[in-house]
C-alpha cells in the first residue's frame, strides 16, 4: 500500500499542477477558444438530443463548467492525501478523481500528451486495485501493470526512434531543441557548436530507452542506473522543453518499477 501512496503522491503533484494550468488558461474552452466546447461537440454529439449525456454536456462542457471541473479536481487530489487508500472513502475519492479526469478528456484529444495518458492509466489502475477489503494479489497486479506499462513506454519510444532515419543520423535532438515550442536558444546554439553532443544525446536516448525494461530484472545496483537516467531525462525535458507534466507522470511509475524489481529478486533468490 505504501508503494501506491508514493505513486499517487508523485502523480498527484503532476495532476494538480496540470489542473491549475488549465484553470489559468480556461479561455481555451470558451466559445472562441481553440478548444471551444461547442465545436468539439461536433465530434461526439449523439443524435438523441434528450439523452443524459446531452444534458450533462450542456452543464459541464463550457468555460465556466470546466473551470469548476478543474477546481474540484484540485480539491479531490488534496483530499486523497488525507483519506487512506483501501478505505471506502479513499476509493470513492479515487473514483471521483478518475471520473473527473475522464470527463475532461472526452471533450477532445487535441492538446493532450503522454503525461495525460500515463496519469489516466495510473488512476484506472488505482481504482480497480484499491477497492476496500481487496486482496494482495489484486494490489500486486496493479503495481506490476504500472511497472510494465512504464517500461513498455520507454521501450516503444526507444524502438520507434531507432527505426527513424532522422534519429539515427543524430539530427533529431538538435532539430527539436531548435524550436521555440520545445527548445531553447542557448541549448540550440550549444548543439550547433558541439556536434558530438548531438550524436551522444541521440544515441544515449535511443539505446537507454530501448533497454529500459532491463531495470525490472537487473540487480538493483544496476537497475538504479536506469532510474537515475530516467529522472535526469525527465528533469531536463521539463527544464529545456517545458514538459513539466511528463516528469511527475513518469516518476510516479518508478516506485512500481522498484517494487517489481525487488519482488523478482526476492522470488528468485
Amino acid at each position: 500500500m505504501e508503494t501506491y501512496q508514493l505513486i499517487y503522491a508523485i502523480m498527484g503533484m503532476g495532476i494538480f499542477i496540470a489542473a491549475t494550468e488549465y484553470v489559468v488558461k480556461i479561455q481555451i474552452f470558451s466559445k472562441n477558444g481553440m478548444l471551444s466546447c461547442e465545436l468539439q461537440q461536433v465530434n461526439w454529439r449523439s443524435k438523441n438530443s434528450r439523452s443524459l449525456l446531452q444534458k450533462l454536456s450542456a452543464i459541464i462542457f463550457n468555460e465556466q463548467g470546466l473551470k469548476y471541473v478543474f477546481i474540484i479536481r484540485c480539491i479531490n487530489i488534496l483530499l486523497l492525501f488525507i483519506f487512506p487508500f483501501g478505505t471506502l472513502a479513499g476509493w470513492v475519492l479515487l473514483y471521483a478523481l478518475g471520473l473527473n479526469i475522464y470527463i475532461s478528456s472526452t471533450i477532445t484529444h487535441y492538446g493532450s500528451d503522454g503525461s495525460d495518458q500515463m496519469s489516466m492509466l495510473i488512476i484506472i489502475t488505482l481504482i480497480l486495485c484499491l477497492i476496500p477489503k481487496g486482496n494482495s494479489l489484486l494490489v500486486n497486479a496493479g503495481v506490476w501493470f504500472i511497472a510494465l506499462q512504464s517500461c513498455l513506454s520507454y521501450a516503444a519510444a526507444g524502438i520507434s526512434k531507432l527505426a527513424s532515419a532522422e534519429w539515427r543520423s543524430s539530427k533529431a535532438i538538435r532539430s527539436i531543441f531548435s524550436t521555440r515550442t520545445y527548445g531553447s536558444e542557448q541549448v540550440a546554439l550549444s548543439l550547433k557548436k558541439y556536434p558530438f553532443l548531438n550524436v551522444f544525446l541521440c544515441w544515449n536516448v535511443m539505446i537507454t530507452e530501448t533497454l529500459f525494461p532491463l531495470c525490472l530484472i537487473l540487480p538493483m545496483h544496476f537497475a538504479i542506473i536506469f532510474l537515475i537516467w530516467g529522472f535526469t531525462f525527465h528533469l531536463l525535458s521539463a527544464i529545456i522543453m517545458g514538459l513539466n507534466a511528463f516528469f511527475w507522470a513518469f516518476m510516479a511509475t518508478y516506485p512500481a518499477i522498484i517494487y517489481v524489481n525487488l519482488q523478482i529478486h526476492h522470488s528468485i533468490f
Binding site: 519510444a157 526512434k161 533529431a172 527539436i176 524550436t179 515550442t181 520545445y182
Partner: peptide, 20 residues
C-alpha cells in the same frame, strides 16, 4: 472506445522540428 490505449512513441519516428 474509451480512448485508454496509450501511444508511447514520443517525438518519433518524426521528431517535432518545426514551430507552427
Amino acid at each position: 472506445l474509451l480512448n485508454i490505449i496509450p501511444l508511447w512513441t514520443f517525438f518519433a519516428p518524426q521528431p517535432g522540428k518545426s514551430d507552427y
